[in-house]
Simulated scan of single mutants.
Amino acid sequence: MRLRSAVAAALGAGVLLITTPAPASAATGQFRYAYMTVDGYEASGFLNSPPNGQCLNLPGVGEDNPQPAHSPKNRTDAWATVFTGTDCEGDSFPLRPHTGSASERLKVRSVVFN
């Protein structure tokens, strides 16, 4: 009897380990935006499968570039909240998963995915 109980307990523990989902650590997909380089050229930026819950300053539009990014497009599977300032400061605007986008009028410098 003890052997059967031990085997059943071991199998039960194994099933729990296999079926427990791993926490999602990244949004799947791509976040896109447009910006003007410091040399005056129009450029496109993107973040592939960005991490969730971490503030990201958008490459190309940091403190060395006086022009913010614009026209953000959220093609990830997570909500994206864009901010007018770096380090997720300033006014914010949420973009829904997969289809969220905004016009050229929305100026952004950072984003966080939830």
Rank of each mutant, 00 (worst) to 15 (best):
V7L: 15
L17F: 07
A10R: 02
F113E: 13
N114S: 15
Y33K: 03
A43E: 14
R4D: 09
G40L: 04
D77E: 04
C55M: 08
G62Q: 04
V15F: 12
A10K: 00
L17Y: 08
A13N: 00
G62A: 01
S25Y: 03
A6S: 07
P94D: 13
Y33G: 03
F113P: 10
M36D: 06
E63I: 12
L58K: 06
A34N: 12
N114P: 02
Q30S: 09
R96M: 12
A10N: 00
G45K: 03
K107C: 02
D91G: 15
G40P: 06
G29V: 11
Q67P: 00
T37F: 08
V15I: 15
V61C: 09
A6H: 05
K107V: 06
S5K: 09
P94Q: 10
A24T: 13
L58M: 09
P66R: 10
K73F: 11
S71L: 09
H98V: 13
M1F: 13
W79C: 03
A9W: 09
P21V: 07
S110C: 08
D87Q: 13
S110W: 03
A13E: 02
R96A: 15
P23N: 09
E104M: 13
A24I: 10
G14I: 04
A27N: 11
A34H: 08
Q54H: 08
P51M: 05
N57T: 12
I18P: 00
L47Y: 08
N57Q: 10
A8W: 05
L16E: 03
L58F: 11
G100R: 02
S44C: 00
A102M: 09
N65V: 05
G100I: 04
H98G: 00
P59L: 05
S5P: 00
S25N: 12
G60T: 04
A26L: 00
V15E: 02
P97V: 07
S101M: 12
S101F: 02
W79M: 14
F31Q: 04
